[in-house]
Structures are given as structure tokens and as C-alpha cells.
Write a protein that binds this DNA or RNA. Structure first.
Length: 204
DNA sequence: AACAACCTCAACCGCATCAGA
DNA sequence: GTCTGATGCGGTTGAGGTTGT
């Protein structure tokens, strides 16, 4: 069931991995995952579920640490993962959520079904942060820090909500969206959207 | 064609938090 | 209440790819 990505196939050829036994301190494989490793990991997770990563790593016979297995599963092997091609809508949503939440990538990812925090973080760092910098340069003024206190409150409130959500529906693959995404795009500008968001959540 | 500079993104690391003993 | 191991998160790194000269 392992959806082996083009990337992983590519990297199977590339030997970045074997720093294995050379390093005296580390006993685990590091570096890029091979298609074979992906397959083994997916097999074991299909049987035992995505928990007890240390055990999974051992059962799969992977010379990887549990942490590495978890990351691989979360970012690549999980079902329903969307890769690449972030749509304009998604980009807009990321921008808006980042404005609200800051670098809370997992929270932002939770609102974008199929997207991972790592992907969003990378996308932000390589695309959006630049876009924003350019915009700010063009418009001269920076609105960045203007709403800090509010921003903090929003993040705190958001954290609590997400925790509660997770508690009630733990194990849900893709987090359920607690507000209508389409609504997000109804607002003509950010300020309006933010205040609407806050009102809806009863934060203000 | 060759090289350098830049970009992208998978993976790692360290720390924080949680859960169970 | 404390300790310990597991899990989750955000920041950072570096290999490989792409673009520019």
C-alpha cells in the first residue's frame, strides 16, 4: 500500500544513506528513505497501526529510530496525503492562517486536509515569505507587528480548541475542519476576515 | 559546456509536552 | 508527586536540482 513517491524512487538510487556504521555514535540509518524501507514501514503500520514508533521501527526491521519512522509516515506514507501543487485557495488560506497563528505549522496544516506541517513550513519558507517581503517592500508599510497582542490571544484560544478537538476525535486521520473553508474566502481583506474569524470564535 | 549561485524540500535535531508506571 | 519513555512540534541543515553567467 505504500505509495512510493517519485522522489523516494529517485533517492533510492542515490546513496546518501550509508553513513550507518561509519558513525560510531549513531547506530541508526539516516538520510533518504528507500522504496524498500517505505514498503516495510507501511506494512508494519498496516498491521500494528501508527503508534509505538520504536516498536514499529524494530518490527519492520528498519535500522531507523522511531522518530524517523514517524516523520516518514506522517509526511509521505500516510493515506490521503496531497503532495505538491498547492492551489491558490490553499495558498491564500495558508497566508491568512499564518497571519493569525504565526509559525504554528501543525495548526495550519490541520486546516488543510492532506497537507503536512512540514510541507507547509517548506512552502512558506521558500515561496510565501518571499512573496510577503516583496509585497511589504512595494507597499512600504509593514503591518506585521501591528496586531501582536491579538495574535497571541488567537493562538492561545486556537490551541485550546484544537486540543479539545483532538481529544474528542483522536485517531482521526485528517483533522476535521471546524469552520467552512469557503467562508474564509468571502472576506475582501485581511482585517475584515480576521475580525470576522475572531467574532465567530467568540474570542473578541 | 562548465561552473557558480540560488532554490527546494526531505530529513534531522533539540526541546516541550504528554501519558503511564 | 516524580520519573521515564513516547510523541509532537518548530527550526535548521544539506543534498540534489535548477537557473544564470
Amino acid at each position: 500500500m505504500a505509495t512510493v513517491t517519485d522522489e523516494s524512487i529517485k533517492k533510492e538510487v542515490n546513496p546518501m544513506a550509508p553513513m550507518t556504521d561509519v558513525s560510531t555514535k549513531r547506530e541508526f540509518n539516516r538520510g533518504a528513505w528507500t522504496a524498500e524501507e517505505d514498503r516495510k514501514l507501511a506494512e508494519v503500520i498496516a498491521i500494528h497501526g501508527p503508534k509505538k514508533w520504536k516498536t514499529i521501527a524494530a518490527k519492520a526491521g528498519l535500522n531507523r529510530c522511531g522518530k524517523s519512522c514517524r516523520l516518514r509516515w506522517m509526511n509521505y506514507l500516510r493515506p490521503n496525503i496531497k503532495r505538491g501543487n498547492i492551489s491558490d485557495q490553499e495558498e491564500d488560506l495558508i497566508l491568512r492562517l499564518h497571519k493569525l497563528l504565526g509559525n504554528r505549522w501543525s495548526l495550519i496544516a490541520g486546516r488543510l486536509p492532506g497537507r503536512t506541517d512540514n510541507e507547509i513550513k517548506n512552502y512558506w519558507n521558500s515561496h510565501l515569505s518571499k512573496k510577503i517581503n516583496q509585497k511589504e517592500k512595494q507597499s512600504g508599510g509593514s503591518t506585521r507587528e501591528g496586531s501582536k497582542p491579538q495574535h497571541q490571544r488567537v493562538v492561545e484560544k486556537f490551541n485550546v480548541e484544537v486540543r479539545e478537538e483532538n481529544n474528542t476525535s483522536h485517531g482521526g486521520e485528517d483533522s476535521n475542519i471546524s469552520f467552512d473553508v469557503d467562508e474564509l474566502f468571502d472576506f475582501s481583506n485581511d482585517l475584515e476576515w480576521v475580525s470576522n474569524f475572531l467574532e465567530l470564535d467568540g474570542i473578541m
